[in-house]
Design a protein around this nucleic acid. Structure first.
Lengths: 232, 232
DNA sequence: CGTTCAATTGATCAGCGTCAAACTAGGTGG
DNA sequence: CCACCTAGTTTGACGCTGATCAATTGAACG
């Protein structure tokens, strides 16, 4: 593993507060692997032997039931996933697959739990991270239960705009069919939803988004911190 | 507070492992209050001054946006709610109101955080509880994204049956309109969904449910641990 | 330059929400 | 004890949202 990568991991909130020797111990036992796109890293229902950290590329978390499936989240560098399953030593609730060529660090779940038991700062960080994850899922759940698909799209665009330039010009970082699934609709419907945002000054050409008048779109989207602000 | 209630709280996973004097300290600073039905205990967006524990009655967690609202969860004795907001010292993501006459213990959030910092066993319990909550919301999210309303109802009935007698005979513990909102549909639609389960041997009379043939309903519902098993 | 897969478009349909009205049950007061 | 009120529930009619199916266009890549 490159030392720059180790530094990146260390700088994650989850690992930045723990004792140095515990962090070193975690890293010594770590595996790192490069995966091509479309590789299933973990599978729903299996036991969680490793805590995963995406350091390059990106990973889709998805869930399946009865021949249907849906995108639950998209994980970008540098962040961990399936922390809850690792901590509880419980089966994965979601599957994960690489979307692009990706570089993933694997930490033995058992070792994460061991260090969690002896390093209080790490335990506190885990709690914070978990609380963060919990709140993210609650927001996502509210998004789905309270909004129509067009409203979800509008708010998604506004959020992405906030994360990036803030100028109303940015690129979608995922395929539209994936975005559709994430937003809880079909690709066909996403196409139509995009069209129906045209009167609000939204233009999407390929993966490039331009929002003419942010406040105009906001009157439709009605974003609220308790759904749309990740730091709220 | 009755000592039997203190014992009940102490026996919660969240509090059972912590040091005795820390638990006592938490309890000394605790408030306990009886509320009539339909009282809003906490409001979305406000800061979380107290960790709540329902010791009698029950409490609805709900969220609102743009004149719509939806039931997120129903909390029964004895359990805590809004732990994540307390830990992160962040605004509530959900509101809470009593459904029945209820008895609620309030622990100062600041004190919970203080003790969390000094009591490792408590910290571990908090992590476990949070991981549990996280996984519960993920399951609920999968339920909503992957299933139709009839499938959600069928699986809900099977879960309730499992929690109670297991014989196929039990009572709904909430009003149907509330259940409808929890399951992500309208009361009218729940009525129709119930009817459409008749061919599968489900009869609901008032609040009494009888399932003639569990396995028959299961062929429709297709329950899976990774959505329907709370301990999975 | 053809292959492949995503994205779009149109037509159709099912699921579910909305609205309005009728029906119930539990509680209150005469 | 009964009439009445209120609120939840059910039913029917209707319409909208969004899914499905099929066909076409578009773009990336060997």
């Amino acid at each position: 593993m490159k030392s720059s990568e180790i530094q990146e991991i260390r700088s994650l909130e989850l690992f930045s507060e723990m004792e140095g020797h515990n962090f070193d111990r975690l890293m010594r036992g770590a595996y790192i692997q490069n995966f091509p796109p479309q590789i299933e890293l973990i599978t729903e229902g299996e036991t969680s032997d490793f805590l995963h950290i995406v350091v390059a590329g990106n990973v889709e978390l998805f869930a399946a039931w009865n021949r249907r499936d849906t995108t639950m989240a998209i994980v970008r560098p540098v962040s961990t996933f399936i922390l809850a399953a690792t901590i509880k030593d419980a089966p994965y609730l979601m599957s994960a697959r690489t979307l692009e060529k990706s570089r993933v660090v694997l930490l033995r779940s058992q070792e994460v739990r061991d260090i969690f038991d002896i390093d209080n700062a790490f335990a506190r960080s885990v709690v914070n991270e978990l609380a963060q994850c919990y709140r993210a899922v609650v927001k996502s759940s509210k998004d789905i239960k309270l909004r129509t698909s067009i409203e979800r799209l509008a708010n998604y665009l506004l959020r992405q705009n906030g994360y990036t330039s803030g100028t109303g010009e940015f690129d979608l970082k995922v395929e539209k069919r994936l975005l559709a699934s994430y937003l809880g609709m079909t690709p066909e419907n996403l196409s139509r939803a995009i069209k129906s945002l045209q009167p609000y000054g939204v233009k999407i050409d390929g993966s490039h988004v331009s929002i003419q008048d942010i406040s105009d779109l906001e009157t439709l989207a009605k974003p609220t911190p308790s759904i749309d602000d990740p730091y709220h």
